[in-house]
Design a protein around this nucleic acid. Sequence first.
DNA 1: ACAGTATTTATCCAACGGGTTAATTTCTCT
DNA 2: AGAGAAATTAACCCGTTGGATAAATACTGT
Lengths: 238, 238
Amino acid sequence: MAKAGKTKRAVTWQRDPEGMRLRILEAAKKEFANYGLAGARVDRIAAAAGANKRMLYYHVGNKEDLYLEVLEGAYEKIRTEERELDLEHLEPCDAIARLIEFTWHYFIRNPEFLALLNTENLFRAKHLKRSTKVKSMHSPFVELIRTVVDRGVARGDFQVAMDPVQLYISIASLSFFYLSNSATLSVIFGRDLLKKDARDARLSHMIGLVLASLTGRSAAEFGQPTPASLRNPSPQLA
Amino acid sequence: MAKAGKTKRAVTWQRDPEGMRLRILEAAKKEFANYGLAGARVDRIAAAAGANKRMLYYHVGNKEDLYLEVLEGAYEKIRTEERELDLEHLEPCDAIARLIEFTWHYFIRNPEFLALLNTENLFRAKHLKRSTKVKSMHSPFVELIRTVVDRGVARGDFQVAMDPVQLYISIASLSFFYLSNSATLSVIFGRDLLKKDARDARLSHMIGLVLASLTGRSAAEFGQPTPASLRNPSPQLA
DNA sequence: ACAGTATTTATCCAACGGGTTAATTTCTCT
DNA sequence: AGAGAAATTAACCCGTTGGATAAATACTGT
């Protein structure tokens, strides 16, 4: 409720357009992530933002405009964090491991991002295609991966020069699917895939998988080994 | 329209309850896959099934019952095909490769399955949890993978004994994410990920990735090499 | 042929939900 | 102080949508 001064004359304070806008976008992000575009309710967003429904239309536009802005914001956020990560000076293996860790933790910290991407894919990227904003926000990772892979191959650390796009997609896949589908997978396998132990095991599995395939060394060499409690779990259904 | 005789007395034919039911479920599957649960329209399902809306309620129940039945049907279908695949007698490497290929092609042939899973995960598996039916339909793959991995380790083909659940999830991940998110990924990378060349490249990449990490041999040894046209593509945006 | 049941159709409706209109309040600038 | 613009609120509008009611039609067994 209490808010920091922002505009030049911080005197009287009943209104706060910029703050309102942000609260609307934040509320909308949660709403769209929780219910999808069709399931999202404009009134609920307004209420959560501490606003009137009319405000959405005043500040952002209609439901789809709002959705697109949320989506763009989500891409912008991940691209920003990606850029801050700079991995150029790490050893090839370490760089790849760091990349996997970053992706994994980013998805864990931002589950709405996963949900928004799924929603957007349900619409076959209809909105994304209209967004010049997102299309110009290149992930730095593809080029980064290319140089890391080349470096790794040159040094003899890596055995093959993988297509960086394939590798990038694969790294994203391993985290994304696990987290995005954790609800159904947990039911089917009868174990909680989101508890601490399971998450730790997943991360080292992924690092092992990718690095082993790049280096040709054993997957067991990378990361801490899988805790014994998870090595040979009872199958499906608790 | 014309239908095969089914009940004992195939004489007059204005009505066909079983056929109607199937047509409704088929139409519903497409509708839910295309629009999600919230976006799906009961009237559209009815129309697509060549039926009256009232028929849905007569034959299946309300929208959510219908959805759950579609979901259960989708799981049943993949579990059935999985079971028909039996891979027991293949060499470990071949078995894993076949598993990857099956998963990949199944997802390509059944895009609705991917969409339904995403929808269900949006609901945090709320419906699946209620379904005793699905919970009892174990995928044969986890146990299969366990034996294949053990066999591969025993023969010295594989270097490590991976947790079969992790491996199963990873194999599914690599196909699922690529296909389910192909719309947004295609926009972001500025290339069509679903065209024939790209699909072929993806499949061999996945097989290479997984088998290399299991065997410790180079990823390049498995499957046909990536076509030159895709080895070093221009990055993001056409 | 006829009673009884299963299946299908034709309408209706109340709630919902996105979007709008118009009035009100608060800030800014002079 | 007061006019004009910006922000906010309250109330309404109306097409949509899931679901229900009731009547009609086709099939079954006798």
